[in-house]
């Protein structure tokens, strides 16, 4: 008698096994769906971008003088990328001190009761829709903040939009870097106090170096958010549709994202107007989208590597 037939089969009824396999397949399909989304994004962007590049001469992408005016076929990348660079720069200038300062205070100085109240408030600020920040940038940041710093500033300016984006990403910086600092084990702080170090010395020389990769990650993620931010810029920077090249943050301008939004607002008119240049204005959306995707992808991957470094260390 074979041993196999003597052993009791414990795997349950056929129906139960079948259900188990069905459920597993469903879950696997769900898991794969996220990959499908990524592939769809890349293929959509690539396909239309290739269509765009084959129909538009490369000289159109770097016009002289620099000028972004998609409806007349001037797709100057320098204009929109300079705008994105300036906005991100201003935003990080605001978000780095505010976000990191708030994080250090919450993680190291605030007593637990204060932290329990303030952390949720910061998280709520992180949830304010960007269109609202855009309105705030137009109504308050522009006139009350930017025009007080520089009397030459326009009512709408890259600076106002940049400060708005900075306000938008500060809570993100604060939240991620606070998590990093709280992940630093207390034994490090106690060792520092044991050596007779003051609180500030402990924070600056022990905690911050230990949490540095988390803080860098926070800044990378914030920069990626700032580059991808659309509505604040579309509302507050003043020249979303057609823009001249500018390197002055106090002038009006546009960014990659705001240019896309304003192109899309006019898609109907462009599409019905017909003609070769019109179709390409819509396709230029996808080309800008591809470039934007690549830049943010790079920042996110590098930021992610830093986050994983703290996760692995302690």
């Amino acid at each position: 008698m074979a041993i196999g037939s003597a052993a009791v089969d414990l795997s349950g009824s056929k129906g139960r096994q079948r259900r188990e396999r069905t459920v597993k397949t469903i879950f696997l399909a769900a898991g794969i769906s996220s990959l499908v989304i990524s592939i769809a994004i890349v293929f959509t962007l690539l396909g239309k971008s290739i269509e765009f590049l084959t129909n538009v001469g490369l000289d159109r992408l770097w016009t002289d003088p620099h000028h972004w005016a998609p409806r007349v076929g001037r797709f100057d990348l320098a204009t929109v990328f300079m705008g994105s660079l300036l906005i991100t720069g201003v935003a990080m200038l605001i978000a780095t001190p505010l976000g990191l300062g708030a994080a250090v205070y919450l993680a190291e100085y605030a007593n637990p009761r204060v932290r329990r109240v303030l952390k949720p408030i910061l998280e709520i600020l992180a949830g304010i829709p960007s269109i609202v920040i855009g309105f705030f940038a137009v109504q308050w940041i522009g006139p009350e903040f930017v025009q007080r710093i520089s009397s030459q500033a326009d009512a709408f300016s890259l600076c106002a939009a940049g400060v708005g984006v900075g306000v938008l990403v500060s809570p993100l910086v604060a939240s991620v870097s606070e998590d990093a600092m709280r992940a630093v084990p207390n034994s490090l702080r106690e060792a520092s106090y044991g050596m007779g170090a003051k609180k500030m010395t402990t924070v600056v020389r022990v905690v911050l170096p230990a949490a540095i990769s988390g803080m860098v990650a926070a800044l990378m993620l914030a920069a990626s958010r700032a580059i991808g931010e659309t509505m604040v810029v579309a509302l507050a920077a003043g020249a979303a549709g057609d823009a001249n090249y500018t390197a002055d943050v106090f002038e009006v301008g546009t960014t990659v994202t705001a240019a896309m939004a304003s192109l899309a607002v006019g898609t109907d008119q462009v599409a019905t107007a017909g003609g070769e240049g019109a179709g390409q204005a819509v396709n230029s959306l996808f080309f800008l989208g591809l470039l934007l995707f690549l830049v943010t992808f790079l920042l996110n991957v590098v930021g992610d590597l830093f986050v994983r470094r703290i996760e692995n260390r302690y």
């Binding site: 959509t44 993620l221 580059i227 991808g228 659309t230 896309m260 989208g289 995707f293």
Partner: peptide, 16 residues
């Protein structure tokens, strides 16, 4: 892939 998708700007989802 999921972590990266979380960081893709919302306009890009609009294009998709």
């Amino acid at each position: 892939n999921i972590r990266n998708l979380a960081g893709v700007p919302s306009v890009v989802y609009g294009l998709l």
